[in-house]
Amino acid sequence: MRSFSFTLEYEDGDPVADAFRADSDLYGHSLACSVVPDHYWRVDRLTGPTEALERAEAAYAEAGHAADCFGAGDCGRDLRVKALHRDPSTRILFTGWTRTDDCRSIPHLALDHLGPGVLFATERHGDRYEWHVLMPSNANLGDLSDAIRTETGAGVRFDLRQVTDESAWLSAYSGRPALPYTHYEAMAAAVERGYYETPREITVKELAAELDLPRSTLSYRLRRAEAELAQSFVGEDR
Rank of each mutant, 00 (worst) to 15 (best):
T164A: 14
F4G: 06
P49L: 01
R193A: 09
I92G: 01
Y173L: 10
R224C: 09
R157I: 09
S167I: 09
R193V: 04
D25P: 07
L141D: 06
P49K: 07
C103R: 01
R124H: 15
D25Y: 02
F20H: 13
D112H: 10
R80N: 04
A56V: 02
P107F: 00
V191Y: 12
I148E: 07
E57G: 09
G13C: 03
P88G: 04
Y220S: 05
A188T: 13
Y173V: 00
A178P: 11
A121R: 04
Y195M: 12
G96L: 00
D38P: 09
R42C: 03
E57P: 02
R161K: 11
L31V: 01
E166A: 13
C69H: 00
A227M: 06
V118K: 01
D68P: 10
H183K: 02
G142Q: 14
L160C: 01
R124Q: 13
V133E: 00
A58R: 12
L160F: 14
L134N: 07
L141E: 11
P136T: 15
G235S: 10
E201P: 07
T164C: 11
G13T: 06
C103T: 01
D165A: 03
T150K: 13
G126I: 00
Y184G: 08
A190G: 11
A227I: 06
A63M: 08
D146P: 00
S145N: 14
R86P: 03
D165N: 08
T122D: 09
L111P: 03
P214Q: 07
D38Y: 10
G28C: 15
W41A: 02
E54S: 09
R55W: 08
A19P: 07
F158R: 05
R238P: 12
R238H: 13
R77I: 07
M187E: 12
T122C: 00
I148G: 05
G117N: 00
E166F: 11
A188D: 10
A147Q: 08
T7Y: 01
A22P: 08
S3F: 03
P180A: 10
L79W: 01
W131R: 00
A188H: 10
T90N: 06
A121W: 02
L211Y: 03
G76R: 00
D74K: 01
F158T: 12
E54K: 12
S34D: 11
V118P: 02
R91Y: 08
S34N: 05
L119T: 12
E57H: 09
A190F: 05
T203F: 04
A63E: 06
D237G: 07
V43W: 03
D127I: 13
A209F: 01
R215M: 04
Y220Q: 05
F233W: 15
R2D: 04
Y220E: 12
S216C: 02
R80Q: 08
E9S: 13
E151T: 03
